[in-house]
């Protein structure tokens, strides 16, 4: 691969120029359409990890996914940032689905396997994920290695985020009116593929959309 541009900022500015040109060439009205507004069907809550670019891995176009990405796709009950994203997406944009997507090889899930000091900010943010490790100690100990444990923690964390989302007033209202469903997923970084999660306690199917 030849690298013509070495400065990283020049590189993305050039990348953007290519994007703008190609988008207009493919569809001369593309930007005029986008300028008119957005009506995404899906709110995507994912990890900040650079290896999981949601629109790219889902092969979606700009305008399809409303996005919140943070460390380890964690939704805290008292986090006003995520709560505002959810409020705007559900009550104002009226998205029909919320996807919470964790992933394999997640630095946050890995960090949650130990109590290693990551500094006060990250320790506080990851506290609920570390609590999952304590709550599920027996199950995690039975797993063959730390990779498997990190994936399981990532799954449990997706379920926990969904549980928190279900308490959000706008979500409760939209779910009860049958206009919104919640879906848990894991993205496998080593395979490039998404898996759907099923609720482990057997009562409900979070992952698959199951009409009636």
């Amino acid at each position: 691969m030849s690298i013509a541009i070495t400065d990283p900022i020049d590189r993305i500015v050039a990348g953007n120029a290519i994007y703008a040109r190609q988008t207009s060439e493919t569809d001369p009205n593309a930007f005029a359409e986008l300028e008119r507004g957005q009506s995404p069907e899906i709110l995507w809550i994912g990890c900040a990890d650079s290896r999981v670019p949601e629109t790219t891995v889902c092969n979606c176009a700009p305008g399809e996914l409303f996005v919140h990405r943070n460390i380890a796709n964690t939704v805290h009950g008292n986090d006003i940032s995520a709560a505002s994203v959810v409020e705007y997406a559900v009550a104002h944009l009226k998205v029909r689905k919320i996807v919470v997507c964790g992933h394999t090889r997640c630095g946050g899930a890995n960090a949650a396997l130990t109590d290693l000091d990551l500094g006060t900010t990250l320790n506080t943010w990851l506290h609920p994920v570390r609590e999952l490790r304590r709550k599920h100690r027996a199950e995690l100990e039975r797993l063959p290695n730390d990779d498997a444990r990190a994936v399981r923690v990532a799954e449990l964390n997706v379920h926990q985020s969904i549980d928190v989302l279900k308490q959000h007033p706008a979500v409760m209202k939209a779910v009860s009116e049958h206009s919104l469903s919640l879906h848990g997923m894991i993205y496998d970084i080593g395979a490039g593929k998404l898996w759907l999660l099923k609720e482990s306690r057997g009562k409900k199917d979070y992952g698959l959309w199951t009409p009636k």
């Binding site: 050039a14 290519i18 994007y19 957005q38 650079s50 790219t56 700009p62 399809e64 919140h68 994203v85």
Partner: peptide, 21 residues
Amino acid sequence: SDSRIPAEAITGLGAGEMFIH
């Protein structure tokens, strides 16, 4: 969060290149 501005797509970057909030 606006759906019309997927960071990687509009900057031409691939998976692994940009950490996102």
